[in-house]
Nucleic acid binder design. Structure first.
Length: 739
DNA sequence: TCTGTAGGCGTTTTT
DNA sequence: CGCCTACAGA
């Protein structure tokens, strides 16, 4: 312990107000520690106090600590709270997401993998563009090979830590083999563009650590204490990274709650937390089971739902608060009535109890469900904010401008070139680009260089002139903005490329709103410039750092919780938050649980955990609503109440548990398991169809199942038939033979 | 090469 | 229902 006068008395203070378990989690600083932190048990408090304890009481230098979180928002909050506890002593503690941590490492070390340190980060749509390009290179029709499906598949491989060769080795059929080849092409294209997609950030870092032990050793030495938040949501690659970083000193503290694991679809592997004690035999385990957030009724109701999961460690949360109101249940005729109920309740709460709008939150399963609620809120002038959804930086006009910036930083970036090229249009079209691409592939140069050579080698005079103009523009732009602060760089791009003039000339309301978004982009860049004035960025330019940040922020991070607005968001986005009054809407089969999850046991359990997450965000009042009728993709559909409603004991509920839901819980669970089991056993028993299965259709002949969607009588199959290509058939009517 | 329109399509959750 | 793509016409 160090005798720094400014810290005297602090250590004691850091433990005040913590319960014995929380205190143990803070004080157990050495060696592996697993903190099983149930919902509302003061997890963030433990993490922040632990960091403060390490610095303030144990004398660990701030920069020796790494704390990894899931979202930028969580990271920001945690850092802020540590600073509040310690003051300036908090200094350089590194609290960040996995992704930004990896970016930081790669920006310094990626040359060891033979790559450029000026790499660009491709987001989902960039990456989809690369997938399409890969399909083109293999002369495959995007109609029969859905690019999104392939992208998803590549993602799954990456989440599992598999590189193209690994995927190829494991391929069991032609389809998988072809997929692996496409994956290889995809990686090659990324490499040629000096680009990394989101998953590459993690995967390449893990690879780097494996291939270069001396590099790993440096980072191990730097971060003597590692903390990981939301450990239940880590995937295999993140697991590898954590183990690599902690394998020397083993001062690893992971915090999580298996009941809140809701990212399995994204490759999160719940085994990571369930097996922690096996991975580290000497691990200490602390359980935080006192809930300080919710009333007894809310907690019991949520617990009753999640208890139905079979694959679960038994756990009981103890409510510290009193019983409170029963959980509300509302049956609406349709989605409009549902919205009306929510908004009327909000109005009542504000009038009668004087609650600010910020007390209320509405959660739904999918982003598309926000609309009717928004319309109703607008009708009564209730201020609200939609959290998540379309990322600001995903808007076309914003991406256009950013493409120019990215191109200046990294001229190899083919996707940005494609974008920037025609923003605004400058007479270089498909044909020219296609030729340039061919040339680039043939001669092994970047797309930009291919374009230059194509123009030099006898393209039409017109094209030549236009390409020359483009290069002049790029060169002068590059000279001017390379070292400039991002706000100035954006201004220059808007001027010199003629993008702004192009929009102004349109003078439509749409163009007007685009210009408005660009102003917002500019304002964001100004904020960045102000925040980073005088900050040492090392060898990197402000523009480069700005682009990194832009690539990794989500819409979630920007909107801080405001006290004067109702919050609307998906149940996923709600994780980690809390609100006094919560509405969980759209509680119908097919909506929540989502139809895509209804067929598989494991997926249903994840839906149930998601429901648990949503319910446990509520502090004082929780209302679940469902609608008999709902407009979905333009047409009316009829819904039955969610099985989750039937899992809540009626004595905890205000209002009637719908009969249909009450009778569901058990049998539906068994059914899903029966189906799952049959699939694993090789397809006997009920018609349980899985991907890759061979089938015979009376008309179309023999084929392979590509995908299964929906459940029950409406279950649909996408099948690639040998003779007639890909068709979608309804299982019930198709008369398929299996085997 | 660009722009407008008609049709097809799929729609889970996100770093 | 709204987004995106493919296609036709200038």
């Amino acid at each position: 312990m160090r005798a720094d006068s400014s810290l005297e008395g602090l250590p004691k203070e850091l433990l005040e107000g913590l319960n014995p378990e929380q205190r143990a989690a803070v004080e157990t600083t050495e060696g592996p520690l697993l903190v099983l932190a149930g919902a509302g048990s003061g997890k963030t408090r433990v993490l922040t106090h632990r960091i403060a304890w390490l610095i303030g009481a144990c004398g660990i230098p701030a920069e020796g600590i790494l704390a990894v979180t899931f979202t930028n928002k969580a990271a920001g909050e945690m850092k802020e709270r540590v600073q509040k506890l310690l003051g300036p002593e908090a200094g350089d503690v590194w609290v960040a997401t996995f992704h930004s941590t990896c970016v930081r490492i790669l920006r310094r070390e990626i040359q060891h993998l033979d790559r450029s340190r000026a790499f660009v980060i491709y987001d989902e749509s960039d990456s989809l563009g690369v997938v399409k390009e890969a399909l083109r290179r293999h002369s495959l029709d995007p109609k029969s090979h859905d690019p999104r499906r392939l992208r998803w598949r590549i993602d799954q491989w990456k989440n599992a830590g598999l590189l193209p060769d690994d995927a190829g080795e494991r391929a069991e059929d032609l389809d998988a083999e072809q997929g692996a080849e496409l994956y290889a092409t995809y990686q090659r294209l990324l490499h040629e563009a000096e680009a990394l997609d989101f998953n590459d950030l993690l995967l390449q870092t893990a690879r780097l650590f494996e291939e270069r032990p001396e590099v790993l050793a440096r980072w191990q030495a730097r971060w003597q204490y590692v903390l990981v938040d939301e450990y239940q949501d880590t995937n295999r690659v993140q697991y590898r990274l954590v183990n690599q970083l902690a394998s020397g000193h083993r001062n690893l503290c992971v915090v999580g709650d298996p009941d809140q694991s809701v990212y399995g679809w994204r490759g999160a592997d719940i085994r990571n937390i369930l097996d922690f004690e096996r991975d580290f035999e000497d691990a200490k385990v602390v359980r935080l089971e006192r809930n300080y957030r919710s009333t007894q009724s809310i907690l019991s109701a949520a617990g009753a739902v999640v208890e139905n999961n079979r694959d679960r460690k038994d756990k009981r949360m103890i409510a510290e608060r009193d019983e409170g109101d029963r959980v509300g249940l509302f049956e609406a005729r349709d989605e409009r009535e549902e919205a009306q109920h929510v908004v009327q309740s909000v109005l009542e709460g504000t009038r009668r109890e004087g609650r600010p709008h910020g007390h209320f939150a509405v959660f739904y399963r999918t982003n598309a469900q926000s609309r009717p609620i928004e319309e109703e809120l607008l009708k009564y002038d209730v201020p609200y904010v939609v959290v998540g959804g379309v990322r600001f930086y995903d808007r076309a006009e914003v991406k256009d401008v950013l493409a120019w910036l990215r191109l200046v930083v990294n001229p190899a970036d083919a996707m940005s070139l494609r974008r920037a090229l025609n923003a605004p249009p400058r007479g270089i079209g498909k044909t020219t680009l296609g030729r340039a691409e061919e040339l680039a592939a043939r001669e092994g140069v970047t797309l930009l260089e291919g374009l230059r050579r194509h123009a030099a080698e006898g393209a039409a005079a017109r094209t030549q002139a236009r390409v020359r103009e483009l290069f002049q523009l790029l060169e002068s732009l590059s000279r001017e903005i390379r070292e400039a602060p991002p706000d100035e760089a954006i201004t220059r791009v808007l001027e010199h490329t003629g993008y702004l003039r192009h929009l102004e000339r349109e003078s439509t309301p749409e163009a007007e709103s685009r210009i408005e978004n660009l102003r917002e982009l500019l304002a964001g860049a100004e904020d960045f410039a102000v925040a980073n004035r005088g900050v040492d960025l090392g060898e990197r330019t402000p523009l480069e750092v700005f682009l990194d940040q832009v690539a990794l922020v989500t819409d979630l991070d920007g909107h801080e919780s405001r006290s004067d607005r109702v919050s609307l968001m998906t149940a996923h986005s709600a994780k980690g938050l809390e609100f006094p009054v919560v509405f969980l809407v759209g509680m119908e089969e097919g909506v929540f649980p989502h139809a895509a999850a209804s067929r598989e046991g494991r997926a249903i359990e994840e839906e149930r955990r998601l429901c648990y997450v949503g319910m446990t965000r509520a502090m004082e009042r929780l209302t679940l609503t469902w609608a008999r009728e709902r407009r979905r993709y333009g047409s009316r559909t009829f819904g039955v109440p969610s099985r989750f409603l039937g899992e809540i004991p009626s004595e905890l509920v205000e209002g009637d548990v719908p009969e249909e839901a009450a009778s569901r819980g058990e049998p539906s669970l068994d059914y899903s398991y029966a189906q799952d089991g049959a699939a694993e056993a090789g397809g006997e028993g009920l018609t349980s169809v899985v991907r890759g299965m061979r089938v015979r259709h009376p008309i179309f002949g023999v084929g392979t199942v590509l995908d299964v969607s929906g459940s029950g009588p409406r279950q649909k199959l996408r099948i690639r038939f040998e003779r007639v290509g890909v068709k979608t058939v309804v299982l019930r009517y198709a008369n398929l033979e299996f085997g």
